[in-house]
Design a protein around this nucleic acid. Structure first.
Lengths: 232, 232
DNA sequence: AGTATTGTGTTCGCTATCGCACACAATTGC
DNA sequence: GCAATTGTGTGCGATAGCGAACACAATACT
Protein backbone atom coordinates (compact mmCIF):
# COMPACT_ATOMS: atom_id res chain seq x y z
CA UNK A 1 0.00 0.00 0.00
CA UNK A 2 1.97 2.99 -1.19
CA UNK A 3 1.27 6.19 0.63
CA UNK A 4 0.08 8.00 -2.47
CA UNK A 5 -2.62 9.93 -0.69
CA UNK A 6 -2.78 12.94 -2.91
CA UNK A 7 -4.29 11.41 -6.01
CA UNK A 8 -7.71 12.86 -6.70
CA UNK A 9 -10.67 10.80 -5.63
CA UNK A 10 -12.93 9.93 -8.52
CA UNK A 11 -15.20 7.44 -6.83
CA UNK A 12 -18.62 8.89 -7.34
CA UNK A 13 -20.08 7.81 -4.04
CA UNK A 14 -17.30 9.66 -2.30
CA UNK A 15 -17.35 12.72 -4.51
CA UNK A 16 -21.08 13.06 -3.92
CA UNK A 17 -20.54 13.40 -0.18
CA UNK A 18 -20.54 16.78 1.53
CA UNK A 19 -17.08 18.22 2.13
CA UNK A 20 -17.24 17.69 5.85
CA UNK A 21 -18.12 14.02 5.58
CA UNK A 22 -15.33 13.48 3.11
CA UNK A 23 -12.85 15.18 5.43
CA UNK A 24 -13.89 12.93 8.29
CA UNK A 25 -13.38 9.83 6.20
CA UNK A 26 -10.10 10.68 4.54
CA UNK A 27 -7.77 9.83 7.41
CA UNK A 28 -8.98 6.25 7.39
CA UNK A 29 -8.47 5.62 3.71
CA UNK A 30 -5.47 4.05 2.11
CA UNK A 31 -5.09 3.98 -1.62
CA UNK A 32 -4.54 0.52 -3.03
CA UNK A 33 -3.81 -0.56 -6.54
CA UNK A 34 -5.90 -3.60 -7.22
CA UNK A 35 -4.67 -6.10 -9.76
CA UNK A 36 -6.61 -8.22 -12.15
CA UNK A 37 -7.68 -11.38 -10.38
CA UNK A 38 -7.29 -10.08 -6.83
CA UNK A 39 -9.88 -11.64 -4.59
CA UNK A 40 -11.30 -9.04 -2.23
CA UNK A 41 -13.73 -11.40 -0.51
CA UNK A 42 -14.29 -15.10 -0.70
CA UNK A 43 -17.87 -16.29 -0.91
CA UNK A 44 -18.93 -16.63 2.69
CA UNK A 45 -15.69 -15.06 3.84
CA UNK A 46 -15.08 -12.12 6.15
CA UNK A 47 -15.23 -8.52 4.99
CA UNK A 48 -12.12 -7.02 6.48
CA UNK A 49 -12.04 -3.90 4.33
CA UNK A 50 -14.43 -1.98 2.20
CA UNK A 51 -13.33 -0.53 -1.13
CA UNK A 52 -14.34 2.50 -3.16
CA UNK A 53 -13.07 2.03 -6.71
CA UNK A 54 -11.57 5.02 -8.44
CA UNK A 55 -10.81 3.42 -11.76
CA UNK A 56 -10.89 -0.31 -11.16
CA UNK A 57 -13.70 -2.72 -11.73
CA UNK A 58 -14.87 -5.49 -9.46
CA UNK A 59 -17.16 -8.44 -10.18
CA UNK A 60 -19.44 -9.99 -7.61
CA UNK A 61 -20.01 -13.69 -8.17
CA UNK A 62 -22.37 -16.17 -6.62
CA UNK A 63 -21.12 -19.73 -6.62
CA UNK A 64 -23.29 -22.79 -6.91
CA UNK A 65 -20.54 -25.34 -6.48
CA UNK A 66 -16.78 -25.66 -6.50
CA UNK A 67 -16.30 -24.81 -10.14
CA UNK A 68 -19.41 -22.99 -11.15
CA UNK A 69 -20.09 -19.37 -10.47
CA UNK A 70 -21.88 -16.55 -12.21
CA UNK A 71 -21.44 -12.85 -11.98
CA UNK A 72 -24.40 -11.18 -10.34
CA UNK A 73 -23.02 -7.68 -9.95
CA UNK A 74 -20.45 -5.37 -11.45
CA UNK A 75 -19.10 -2.44 -9.48
CA UNK A 76 -16.94 0.41 -10.68
CA UNK A 77 -16.38 3.94 -9.50
CA UNK A 78 -20.12 4.45 -9.12
CA UNK A 79 -20.18 2.14 -6.14
CA UNK A 80 -18.58 0.39 -3.25
CA UNK A 81 -17.40 -3.10 -2.47
CA UNK A 82 -18.58 -4.31 0.88
CA UNK A 83 -22.21 -3.27 0.85
CA UNK A 84 -23.17 -5.80 3.53
CA UNK A 85 -21.21 -3.73 6.04
CA UNK A 86 -23.68 -0.92 5.55
CA UNK A 87 -26.34 -3.41 6.58
CA UNK A 88 -24.46 -4.49 9.66
CA UNK A 89 -23.07 -7.70 8.16
CA UNK A 90 -19.40 -8.48 7.84
CA UNK A 91 -19.57 -11.71 5.87
CA UNK A 92 -19.70 -11.48 2.11
CA UNK A 93 -22.25 -13.64 0.31
CA UNK A 94 -20.32 -13.01 -2.88
CA UNK A 95 -16.96 -13.78 -4.28
CA UNK A 96 -15.53 -10.37 -5.14
CA UNK A 97 -12.86 -10.43 -7.85
CA UNK A 98 -11.02 -7.58 -9.49
CA UNK A 99 -11.87 -7.60 -13.15
CA UNK A 100 -10.16 -4.41 -14.23
CA UNK A 101 -7.02 -3.18 -12.49
CA UNK A 102 -6.79 0.25 -10.99
CA UNK A 103 -6.94 2.24 -7.79
CA UNK A 104 -9.43 2.03 -4.99
CA UNK A 105 -9.81 3.67 -1.60
CA UNK A 106 -9.68 1.08 1.08
CA UNK A 107 -10.82 1.28 4.70
CA UNK A 108 -10.91 -1.16 7.55
CA UNK A 109 -14.38 -2.49 8.15
CA UNK A 110 -14.36 -1.43 11.78
CA UNK A 111 -13.37 2.15 10.93
CA UNK A 112 -15.94 2.33 8.21
CA UNK A 113 -18.67 1.01 10.42
CA UNK A 114 -17.97 3.64 13.03
CA UNK A 115 -17.89 6.51 10.55
CA UNK A 116 -20.96 5.14 8.85
CA UNK A 117 -22.92 5.22 12.09
CA UNK A 118 -22.10 8.86 12.57
CA UNK A 119 -22.81 10.18 9.13
CA UNK A 120 -26.33 10.47 7.81
CA UNK A 121 -24.93 11.64 4.49
CA UNK A 122 -22.83 8.53 4.13
CA UNK A 123 -25.76 6.35 5.07
CA UNK A 124 -28.03 7.95 2.56
CA UNK A 125 -25.55 7.56 -0.28
CA UNK A 126 -24.73 3.98 0.55
CA UNK A 127 -28.29 2.83 1.08
CA UNK A 128 -29.16 4.21 -2.29
CA UNK A 129 -26.30 2.25 -3.79
CA UNK A 130 -27.36 -0.88 -1.95
CA UNK A 131 -30.74 -0.52 -3.55
CA UNK A 132 -29.19 -0.13 -6.98
CA UNK A 133 -27.07 -3.18 -6.47
CA UNK A 134 -30.10 -5.18 -5.42
CA UNK A 135 -31.86 -4.10 -8.58
CA UNK A 136 -28.89 -4.99 -10.70
CA UNK A 137 -28.63 -8.43 -9.15
CA UNK A 138 -32.34 -9.04 -9.66
CA UNK A 139 -32.17 -7.95 -13.27
CA UNK A 140 -29.30 -10.34 -13.78
CA UNK A 141 -31.41 -13.15 -12.35
CA UNK A 142 -34.15 -12.50 -14.89
CA UNK A 143 -31.63 -11.91 -17.65
CA UNK A 144 -29.97 -15.24 -16.99
CA UNK A 145 -33.33 -16.84 -17.31
CA UNK A 146 -34.51 -15.38 -20.57
CA UNK A 147 -31.73 -14.09 -22.73
CA UNK A 148 -29.28 -15.80 -25.01
CA UNK A 149 -25.54 -15.61 -24.65
CA UNK A 150 -25.05 -13.05 -27.41
CA UNK A 151 -27.45 -10.64 -25.74
CA UNK A 152 -25.93 -11.20 -22.34
CA UNK A 153 -22.43 -10.69 -23.69
CA UNK A 154 -23.48 -7.44 -25.33
CA UNK A 155 -25.02 -6.32 -22.07
CA UNK A 156 -21.92 -7.22 -20.15
CA UNK A 157 -19.64 -5.30 -22.49
CA UNK A 158 -21.83 -2.24 -22.24
CA UNK A 159 -21.99 -2.40 -18.47
CA UNK A 160 -18.24 -2.67 -18.35
CA UNK A 161 -17.85 0.19 -20.74
CA UNK A 162 -20.00 2.39 -18.53
CA UNK A 163 -17.86 1.55 -15.53
CA UNK A 164 -14.38 1.85 -16.95
CA UNK A 165 -15.27 4.77 -19.21
CA UNK A 166 -13.45 3.24 -22.15
CA UNK A 167 -14.37 1.38 -25.30
CA UNK A 168 -11.50 -1.00 -25.12
CA UNK A 169 -10.58 -3.41 -22.38
CA UNK A 170 -8.29 -6.27 -21.71
CA UNK A 171 -9.96 -9.58 -21.09
CA UNK A 172 -9.98 -13.08 -22.42
CA UNK A 173 -12.88 -15.13 -23.61
CA UNK A 174 -12.08 -17.63 -20.92
CA UNK A 175 -12.65 -14.90 -18.35
CA UNK A 176 -15.84 -13.73 -19.98
CA UNK A 177 -17.10 -17.29 -19.96
CA UNK A 178 -16.62 -17.44 -16.21
CA UNK A 179 -18.50 -14.21 -15.70
CA UNK A 180 -21.41 -15.17 -17.86
CA UNK A 181 -21.43 -18.71 -16.55
CA UNK A 182 -21.16 -20.31 -19.99
CA UNK A 183 -18.59 -22.34 -21.88
CA UNK A 184 -15.65 -20.55 -23.35
CA UNK A 185 -16.79 -21.74 -26.75
CA UNK A 186 -20.10 -20.05 -26.16
CA UNK A 187 -18.30 -16.75 -25.79
CA UNK A 188 -16.25 -17.37 -28.92
CA UNK A 189 -19.43 -17.86 -30.88
CA UNK A 190 -21.25 -14.90 -29.39
CA UNK A 191 -18.24 -12.61 -29.76
CA UNK A 192 -17.69 -13.74 -33.30
CA UNK A 193 -21.32 -13.01 -34.08
CA UNK A 194 -21.01 -9.51 -32.65
CA UNK A 195 -17.83 -8.98 -34.58
CA UNK A 196 -19.46 -10.02 -37.84
CA UNK A 197 -22.07 -7.37 -37.17
CA UNK A 198 -19.22 -4.85 -36.77
CA UNK A 199 -20.31 -4.01 -33.26
CA UNK A 200 -17.09 -5.07 -31.61
CA UNK A 201 -13.68 -6.22 -32.64
CA UNK A 202 -11.27 -8.29 -30.69
CA UNK A 203 -7.87 -9.81 -30.73
CA UNK A 204 -6.21 -12.08 -28.27
CA UNK A 205 -7.14 -10.86 -24.83
CA UNK A 206 -8.51 -7.55 -25.98
CA UNK A 207 -11.96 -6.32 -26.90
CA UNK A 208 -12.96 -3.04 -28.50
CA UNK A 209 -16.48 -1.73 -28.76
CA UNK A 210 -16.81 -0.25 -32.23
CA UNK A 211 -20.48 0.62 -32.34
CA UNK A 212 -21.90 1.28 -28.88
CA UNK A 213 -25.42 2.05 -29.98
CA UNK A 214 -25.49 -0.93 -32.28
CA UNK A 215 -24.33 -3.03 -29.39
CA UNK A 216 -27.13 -1.68 -27.28
CA UNK A 217 -29.57 -2.85 -29.89
CA UNK A 218 -28.00 -6.29 -29.81
CA UNK A 219 -28.18 -6.44 -26.03
CA UNK A 220 -31.30 -7.28 -24.09
CA UNK A 221 -33.40 -4.60 -22.45
CA UNK A 222 -31.81 -5.49 -19.13
CA UNK A 223 -28.93 -3.20 -19.96
CA UNK A 224 -31.01 -0.12 -20.44
CA UNK A 225 -33.36 -0.96 -17.60
CA UNK A 226 -30.54 -0.94 -15.08
CA UNK A 227 -28.69 1.92 -16.67
CA UNK A 228 -31.68 4.20 -16.36
CA UNK A 229 -31.90 3.52 -12.66
CA UNK A 230 -28.25 4.27 -12.14
CA UNK A 231 -28.65 7.50 -14.03
CA UNK A 232 -30.66 8.97 -11.17
CA UNK B 1 -59.29 -3.31 6.12
CA UNK B 2 -61.21 -4.82 9.01
CA UNK B 3 -60.19 -3.57 12.41
CA UNK B 4 -59.18 -7.01 13.68
CA UNK B 5 -56.29 -5.74 15.74
CA UNK B 6 -56.20 -8.40 18.37
CA UNK B 7 -54.97 -11.33 16.34
CA UNK B 8 -51.54 -12.42 17.48
CA UNK B 9 -48.62 -11.21 15.42
CA UNK B 10 -46.60 -14.06 14.02
CA UNK B 11 -44.35 -12.15 11.66
CA UNK B 12 -40.89 -13.03 12.81
CA UNK B 13 -39.30 -9.69 12.12
CA UNK B 14 -41.87 -8.08 14.35
CA UNK B 15 -41.79 -10.71 17.07
CA UNK B 16 -38.02 -10.38 17.26
CA UNK B 17 -38.30 -6.71 18.15
CA UNK B 18 -38.03 -5.50 21.75
CA UNK B 19 -41.38 -4.94 23.47
CA UNK B 20 -41.01 -1.19 23.43
CA UNK B 21 -40.35 -0.97 19.73
CA UNK B 22 -43.32 -3.18 19.02
CA UNK B 23 -45.55 -1.01 21.17
CA UNK B 24 -44.47 2.07 19.27
CA UNK B 25 -45.26 0.50 15.96
CA UNK B 26 -48.58 -1.11 16.75
CA UNK B 27 -50.79 1.97 16.44
CA UNK B 28 -49.77 2.40 12.84
CA UNK B 29 -50.54 -1.12 11.74
CA UNK B 30 -53.67 -2.31 10.14
CA UNK B 31 -54.29 -5.97 9.55
CA UNK B 32 -55.10 -6.84 5.98
CA UNK B 33 -56.11 -10.12 4.45
CA UNK B 34 -54.21 -10.47 1.23
CA UNK B 35 -55.74 -12.55 -1.53
CA UNK B 36 -54.06 -14.71 -4.08
CA UNK B 37 -53.05 -12.56 -7.02
CA UNK B 38 -53.16 -9.23 -5.21
CA UNK B 39 -50.52 -6.91 -6.59
CA UNK B 40 -48.83 -5.02 -3.77
CA UNK B 41 -46.42 -3.11 -6.01
CA UNK B 42 -46.07 -2.79 -9.72
CA UNK B 43 -42.58 -3.01 -11.12
CA UNK B 44 -41.33 0.55 -11.02
CA UNK B 45 -44.40 1.62 -9.11
CA UNK B 46 -44.73 3.51 -5.84
CA UNK B 47 -44.45 1.83 -2.45
CA UNK B 48 -47.40 3.25 -0.57
CA UNK B 49 -47.43 0.69 2.21
CA UNK B 50 -45.07 -1.84 3.66
CA UNK B 51 -46.29 -5.27 4.70
CA UNK B 52 -45.23 -7.76 7.33
CA UNK B 53 -46.74 -11.14 6.42
CA UNK B 54 -48.19 -13.22 9.24
CA UNK B 55 -49.23 -16.21 7.23
CA UNK B 56 -49.32 -15.09 3.63
CA UNK B 57 -46.67 -15.46 0.99
CA UNK B 58 -45.51 -12.87 -1.49
CA UNK B 59 -43.44 -13.27 -4.63
CA UNK B 60 -41.09 -10.63 -5.95
CA UNK B 61 -40.73 -10.67 -9.71
CA UNK B 62 -38.42 -8.90 -12.08
CA UNK B 63 -39.87 -8.31 -15.52
CA UNK B 64 -37.89 -8.26 -18.73
CA UNK B 65 -40.75 -7.33 -21.02
CA UNK B 66 -44.50 -7.12 -21.11
CA UNK B 67 -45.16 -10.82 -20.75
CA UNK B 68 -42.01 -12.24 -19.29
CA UNK B 69 -41.10 -12.12 -15.65
CA UNK B 70 -39.28 -14.35 -13.23
CA UNK B 71 -39.50 -14.63 -9.51
CA UNK B 72 -36.36 -13.41 -7.81
CA UNK B 73 -37.53 -13.46 -4.22
CA UNK B 74 -40.07 -15.14 -1.99
CA UNK B 75 -41.13 -13.55 1.27
CA UNK B 76 -43.23 -15.04 4.05
CA UNK B 77 -43.51 -14.34 7.73
CA UNK B 78 -39.74 -14.23 8.08
CA UNK B 79 -39.63 -10.97 6.20
CA UNK B 80 -41.15 -7.77 4.99
CA UNK B 81 -42.45 -6.44 1.72
CA UNK B 82 -41.14 -3.01 0.93
CA UNK B 83 -37.46 -3.37 1.73
CA UNK B 84 -36.49 -0.39 -0.44
CA UNK B 85 -38.18 1.88 2.07
CA UNK B 86 -35.59 0.87 4.64
CA UNK B 87 -33.01 2.10 2.15
CA UNK B 88 -34.76 5.41 1.64
CA UNK B 89 -36.40 4.45 -1.66
CA UNK B 90 -40.12 4.43 -2.26
CA UNK B 91 -40.23 2.94 -5.74
CA UNK B 92 -40.33 -0.81 -6.05
CA UNK B 93 -38.01 -2.40 -8.60
CA UNK B 94 -40.08 -5.56 -8.31
CA UNK B 95 -43.56 -6.67 -9.07
CA UNK B 96 -44.86 -7.93 -5.74
CA UNK B 97 -47.67 -10.46 -6.03
CA UNK B 98 -49.47 -12.40 -3.34
CA UNK B 99 -48.83 -16.04 -3.92
CA UNK B 100 -50.44 -17.49 -0.82
CA UNK B 101 -53.38 -15.80 0.84
CA UNK B 102 -53.34 -14.79 4.45
CA UNK B 103 -52.91 -11.92 6.86
CA UNK B 104 -50.28 -9.25 6.89
CA UNK B 105 -49.60 -6.16 8.98
CA UNK B 106 -49.70 -3.13 6.81
CA UNK B 107 -48.34 0.35 7.44
CA UNK B 108 -48.21 3.53 5.43
CA UNK B 109 -44.79 4.13 3.99
CA UNK B 110 -44.54 7.57 5.56
CA UNK B 111 -45.39 6.27 9.03
CA UNK B 112 -42.99 3.44 8.66
CA UNK B 113 -40.20 5.66 7.51
CA UNK B 114 -40.60 7.88 10.52
CA UNK B 115 -40.69 5.03 13.01
CA UNK B 116 -37.80 3.40 11.25
CA UNK B 117 -35.64 6.47 11.68
CA UNK B 118 -36.26 6.47 15.37
CA UNK B 119 -35.67 2.85 16.15
CA UNK B 120 -32.24 1.32 16.05
CA UNK B 121 -33.76 -2.06 16.81
CA UNK B 122 -36.04 -1.87 13.82
CA UNK B 123 -33.16 -0.77 11.63
CA UNK B 124 -30.99 -3.60 12.71
CA UNK B 125 -33.65 -6.22 12.07
CA UNK B 126 -34.58 -4.84 8.70
CA UNK B 127 -31.07 -4.33 7.44
CA UNK B 128 -30.34 -7.91 8.27
CA UNK B 129 -33.38 -8.98 6.29
CA UNK B 130 -32.37 -6.75 3.40
CA UNK B 131 -29.09 -8.56 3.31
CA UNK B 132 -30.82 -11.93 3.32
CA UNK B 133 -33.06 -10.87 0.49
CA UNK B 134 -30.07 -9.70 -1.52
CA UNK B 135 -28.46 -13.07 -1.00
CA UNK B 136 -31.60 -14.88 -2.01
CA UNK B 137 -31.93 -12.84 -5.17
CA UNK B 138 -28.30 -13.44 -6.07
CA UNK B 139 -28.63 -17.16 -5.49
CA UNK B 140 -31.65 -17.16 -7.76
CA UNK B 141 -29.61 -15.46 -10.45
CA UNK B 142 -27.00 -18.19 -10.33
CA UNK B 143 -29.64 -20.89 -10.00
CA UNK B 144 -31.44 -19.65 -13.09
CA UNK B 145 -28.19 -19.91 -14.93
CA UNK B 146 -27.12 -23.41 -14.01
CA UNK B 147 -29.96 -25.59 -12.89
CA UNK B 148 -32.62 -27.48 -14.76
CA UNK B 149 -36.32 -26.95 -14.30
CA UNK B 150 -36.84 -30.02 -12.13
CA UNK B 151 -34.23 -28.84 -9.65
CA UNK B 152 -35.58 -25.33 -9.62
CA UNK B 153 -39.11 -26.57 -9.12
CA UNK B 154 -37.99 -28.71 -6.20
CA UNK B 155 -36.20 -25.73 -4.73
CA UNK B 156 -39.23 -23.54 -5.15
CA UNK B 157 -41.54 -26.01 -3.46
CA UNK B 158 -39.18 -26.33 -0.52
CA UNK B 159 -38.81 -22.59 -0.15
CA UNK B 160 -42.55 -22.24 -0.19
CA UNK B 161 -42.93 -25.01 2.35
CA UNK B 162 -40.54 -23.24 4.69
CA UNK B 163 -42.53 -20.05 4.43
CA UNK B 164 -46.09 -21.32 4.73
CA UNK B 165 -45.15 -24.02 7.23
CA UNK B 166 -47.23 -26.62 5.41
CA UNK B 167 -46.59 -29.50 3.07
CA UNK B 168 -49.58 -28.84 0.93
CA UNK B 169 -50.45 -25.74 -1.03
CA UNK B 170 -52.86 -24.55 -3.61
CA UNK B 171 -51.35 -23.55 -6.91
CA UNK B 172 -51.58 -24.36 -10.54
CA UNK B 173 -48.85 -25.38 -12.91
CA UNK B 174 -49.64 -22.32 -14.94
CA UNK B 175 -48.80 -20.20 -11.93
CA UNK B 176 -45.62 -22.13 -11.19
CA UNK B 177 -44.55 -21.66 -14.78
CA UNK B 178 -44.82 -17.89 -14.37
CA UNK B 179 -42.76 -17.95 -11.21
CA UNK B 180 -40.02 -20.11 -12.65
CA UNK B 181 -40.13 -18.28 -15.95
CA UNK B 182 -40.70 -21.42 -18.02
CA UNK B 183 -43.46 -22.87 -20.14
CA UNK B 184 -46.38 -24.47 -18.42
CA UNK B 185 -45.48 -27.71 -20.16
CA UNK B 186 -42.05 -27.53 -18.58
CA UNK B 187 -43.66 -27.54 -15.15
CA UNK B 188 -45.90 -30.46 -16.11
CA UNK B 189 -42.88 -32.48 -17.05
CA UNK B 190 -40.84 -31.52 -14.02
CA UNK B 191 -43.74 -32.07 -11.63
CA UNK B 192 -44.54 -35.37 -13.22
CA UNK B 193 -40.92 -36.43 -12.82
CA UNK B 194 -40.95 -35.51 -9.13
CA UNK B 195 -44.21 -37.35 -8.69
CA UNK B 196 -42.82 -40.50 -10.27
CA UNK B 197 -40.05 -40.35 -7.71
CA UNK B 198 -42.75 -40.18 -4.99
CA UNK B 199 -41.41 -36.88 -3.74
CA UNK B 200 -44.59 -34.95 -4.36
CA UNK B 201 -48.12 -35.63 -5.44
CA UNK B 202 -50.50 -33.29 -7.05
CA UNK B 203 -53.96 -32.95 -8.36
CA UNK B 204 -55.63 -30.13 -10.15
CA UNK B 205 -54.44 -26.93 -8.52
CA UNK B 206 -52.95 -28.61 -5.50
CA UNK B 207 -49.50 -29.84 -4.62
CA UNK B 208 -48.41 -31.96 -1.67
CA UNK B 209 -44.85 -32.58 -0.62
CA UNK B 210 -44.65 -36.25 0.33
CA UNK B 211 -40.95 -36.65 0.96
CA UNK B 212 -39.30 -33.41 2.01
CA UNK B 213 -35.82 -34.78 2.40
CA UNK B 214 -36.04 -36.64 -0.87
CA UNK B 215 -37.15 -33.42 -2.47
CA UNK B 216 -34.15 -31.66 -1.00
CA UNK B 217 -31.94 -34.20 -2.67
CA UNK B 218 -33.69 -33.53 -5.97
CA UNK B 219 -33.28 -29.77 -5.58
CA UNK B 220 -30.10 -27.90 -6.32
CA UNK B 221 -27.80 -26.80 -3.55
CA UNK B 222 -29.21 -23.29 -3.87
CA UNK B 223 -32.01 -24.29 -1.56
CA UNK B 224 -29.81 -25.32 1.29
CA UNK B 225 -27.34 -22.52 0.73
CA UNK B 226 -30.01 -19.88 1.28
CA UNK B 227 -31.80 -21.79 3.99
CA UNK B 228 -28.68 -21.97 6.11
CA UNK B 229 -28.27 -18.23 5.95
CA UNK B 230 -31.84 -17.62 6.98
CA UNK B 231 -31.38 -19.98 9.88
CA UNK B 232 -29.13 -17.47 11.63
C1' DA C 1 -78.26 -31.09 -17.02
C1' DG C 2 -75.50 -28.95 -20.22
C1' DT C 3 -72.07 -25.56 -21.46
C1' DA C 4 -68.00 -22.82 -20.71
C1' DT C 5 -63.81 -22.41 -18.42
C1' DT C 6 -59.79 -23.92 -16.36
C1' DG C 7 -56.08 -27.21 -15.46
C1' DT C 8 -53.25 -30.99 -17.09
C1' DG C 9 -51.03 -34.31 -20.45
C1' DT C 10 -48.90 -35.29 -24.94
C1' DT C 11 -46.67 -34.61 -29.25
C1' DC C 12 -43.79 -32.27 -32.96
C1' DG C 13 -40.01 -29.91 -34.87
C1' DC C 14 -36.58 -26.43 -33.65
C1' DT C 15 -32.79 -23.93 -31.32
C1' DA C 16 -29.46 -22.72 -27.77
C1' DT C 17 -26.41 -24.56 -25.17
C1' DC C 18 -23.74 -28.35 -23.39
C1' DG C 19 -19.44 -31.43 -22.91
C1' DC C 20 -15.74 -33.00 -25.24
C1' DA C 21 -11.97 -33.17 -28.30
C1' DC C 22 -8.73 -31.32 -31.32
C1' DA C 23 -6.25 -27.77 -34.26
C1' DC C 24 -3.83 -23.80 -34.52
C1' DA C 25 -1.98 -19.09 -33.40
C1' DA C 26 0.13 -15.91 -30.36
C1' DT C 27 2.74 -15.04 -26.52
C1' DT C 28 6.04 -16.08 -22.76
C1' DG C 29 10.10 -18.05 -20.65
C1' DC C 30 14.42 -20.13 -20.86
C1' DG D 1 15.60 -19.65 -31.14
C1' DC D 2 12.70 -23.34 -29.23
C1' DA D 3 9.46 -25.20 -26.00
C1' DA D 4 5.71 -24.47 -23.02
C1' DT D 5 1.78 -21.94 -22.10
C1' DT D 6 -2.18 -19.36 -23.16
C1' DG D 7 -5.91 -17.79 -26.16
C1' DT D 8 -9.01 -18.70 -29.98
C1' DG D 9 -11.56 -21.40 -33.69
C1' DT D 10 -14.13 -25.53 -35.21
C1' DG D 11 -16.67 -29.74 -35.28
C1' DC D 12 -19.35 -33.52 -33.05
C1' DG D 13 -23.40 -35.68 -30.92
C1' DA D 14 -26.48 -35.06 -26.98
C1' DT D 15 -30.06 -32.65 -24.42
C1' DA D 16 -33.01 -29.20 -22.13
C1' DG D 17 -36.09 -26.15 -23.16
C1' DC D 18 -38.92 -23.56 -26.60
C1' DG D 19 -43.42 -22.44 -29.27
C1' DA D 20 -47.40 -24.19 -31.00
C1' DA D 21 -51.14 -27.17 -31.37
C1' DC D 22 -54.37 -30.41 -29.75
C1' DA D 23 -56.82 -33.83 -26.46
C1' DC D 24 -58.97 -34.55 -22.44
C1' DA D 25 -60.49 -34.09 -17.48
C1' DA D 26 -62.27 -31.51 -13.71
C1' DT D 27 -64.60 -27.73 -12.08
C1' DA D 28 -67.74 -23.60 -12.36
C1' DC D 29 -71.70 -21.36 -14.21
C1' DT D 30 -76.77 -20.78 -14.98
Amino acid sequence: MPGSKNVAITNRLLTSLPQKTKKDLLPYFTTVELQFGDVLYEAGGPIRHVYFPDDCLVSLLTTVDANRAAEVGLVGNEGMIGVPVALGIDVSPFLAVVQGRGNARCMKTADFRREFRNSAALQSVLFRFTHLLMTQVAQTAACNRFHVVTQRLARWLLMTRDRVHANEFVLTQEFLARMLGVRRVGVTQAASALQKLKLISYTRGNITIIDPSGLEAAACGCYEAVKELYAK
